[in-house]
Computed example of a mutant assay.
Amino acid sequence: MKDPVTAITGITYDRESIEHWLFRNKNTTCPVTKQPLPLDSDLTPNHTLRRLIQSWCTQNASFGIDRIPTPKPPLNKTHVQKLLKEMTDSRFQLKSLMQLELLAAENERNRKCLLENGVPKSMIMFLVDCYKKGEILEGIEEALSFLQFVKVPTEEVKNLLSENDQILDSLTWILSSEVKNSVAVKSHAVIVLKRFINKCDSILLERLKPEFFEKIVNVLKHGVLTQQGLCSALHVLLCCCPLGRNRLMMVEVGLVHELIEIELTAAHEKRITELTFGILFHLCSCANGRFQFLSHEGSIAVLTERIMKGSMTVDDRGVFILSLISKFSATKNVLDEMLKVGTVKKLFVLLQGDHAKYLKDKVMQMFKAHSEVWKNSPCFPQTSFYAS
């Protein structure tokens, strides 16, 4: 025990442990007495016990025991408001941003205090102001990092989006800007963008412009994202896919090609493949998307290779993409390639395995539609197998 505090139930705990119990695990009872212990209840420092612990540490220093330091006072509204005021002064702006980031990283109690005092909104407005001025100011990395530490509640995100229509533009502007520590900053930006895009309503998603998708595709193309950043960027795109106009814009900015390149060149990770296949399924629902998919020499091969690798989501999306190709874009060359790269063989193996009936039905539809082309292949099922 390093920082003893007494709850309103009269039980003394280590501050870090009880705050983890309350804030991280969202418990509302005292662990010992089981009495109600609201999240906003006071935790009073137990100075007497802390001095006793420090005294014991001092007496046992010869045994290698270090004296625990006197805890810092908890973060309070006055300190937060002082830092927010300094944020508006260019002389102290960077220093205050750095201090706020450090406080957010420190513990859950600080994050709760910072959230209650409106710091996330101030951070967002700082980024919007940078965007309006067209200046990459010092402190952008700290502001983005802060927004990763502090989870902004859904309602507050929605309010921020309704109050300011330049938040999404500000975040994608960072993706296209020259910044120091580029990989970290752009990864932070797209992670924050994911949190906001998750809360966007259909009206806001319908107002997205081609530049929004172009900037995301560019960071995918140049590989300037961490693995977490890449997953977040793909998640953003997948959230935008249900709207037809967004799918068309994604195709026009070359997203199909970049998704296939990610699968061909990036370290294989199940979650990334699930996201890329999810987006490709949506994009292949339009003719131009299927055309661009088939224009890439490695598209069918990589799609085939990823199926039946341990992810039901990948199997689902992969079969549905092949079904779209089979139904709308099955030229003789495409069907021959599906034989050449093992697609037909893989589908037959899937048909024999323990997979959902709807997937097997999709495979059977493809077999029936193209049996005349594939029937002489040794991997193609006999007529008695697929005829029904």
Rank of each mutant, 00 (worst) to 15 (best):
residue 200 C to Q: 03
residue 332 K to P: 07
residue 56 W to T: 12
residue 3 D to H: 02
residue 156 E to G: 01
residue 188 H to W: 02
residue 264 L to S: 13
residue 302 V to P: 09
residue 46 N to K: 05
residue 206 E to Q: 07
residue 311 S to L: 06
residue 294 L to M: 05
residue 305 E to K: 11
residue 230 L to V: 05
residue 380 F to E: 03
residue 221 K to P: 11
residue 317 R to P: 03
residue 231 C to S: 10
residue 107 N to M: 00
residue 383 T to H: 14
residue 97 L to D: 01
residue 129 D to E: 11
residue 329 S to M: 03
residue 79 H to A: 14
residue 264 L to C: 13
residue 388 S to Q: 12
residue 312 M to K: 15
residue 354 D to W: 07
residue 151 K to L: 14
residue 326 S to Y: 01
residue 63 F to M: 13
residue 238 L to H: 11
residue 22 L to F: 07
residue 312 M to W: 09
residue 316 D to Q: 12
residue 365 Q to L: 10
residue 147 L to E: 03
residue 185 V to L: 02
residue 254 G to R: 04
residue 180 K to D: 13
residue 24 R to H: 15
residue 20 H to R: 11
residue 200 C to P: 03
residue 102 L to N: 12
residue 317 R to C: 10
residue 232 S to C: 10
residue 126 F to D: 03
residue 53 I to K: 06
residue 356 A to S: 08
residue 46 N to Y: 06
residue 220 L to K: 02
residue 204 L to D: 09
residue 20 H to Q: 11
residue 225 L to C: 04
residue 293 F to P: 01
residue 336 D to K: 11
residue 142 E to W: 03
residue 263 E to I: 15
residue 247 R to L: 05
residue 368 K to Y: 12
residue 167 I to N: 00
residue 226 T to D: 00
residue 272 I to P: 00
residue 277 F to T: 15
residue 260 I to T: 13
residue 72 K to E: 14
residue 134 G to T: 00
residue 227 Q to P: 01
residue 367 F to M: 07
residue 136 I to V: 13
residue 162 S to D: 08
residue 342 G to F: 10
residue 9 T to Q: 10
residue 305 E to M: 10
residue 271 R to Q: 12
residue 247 R to G: 07
residue 110 N to L: 03
residue 246 N to P: 14
residue 353 G to D: 10
residue 350 L to R: 04
residue 87 M to V: 01
residue 247 R to K: 14
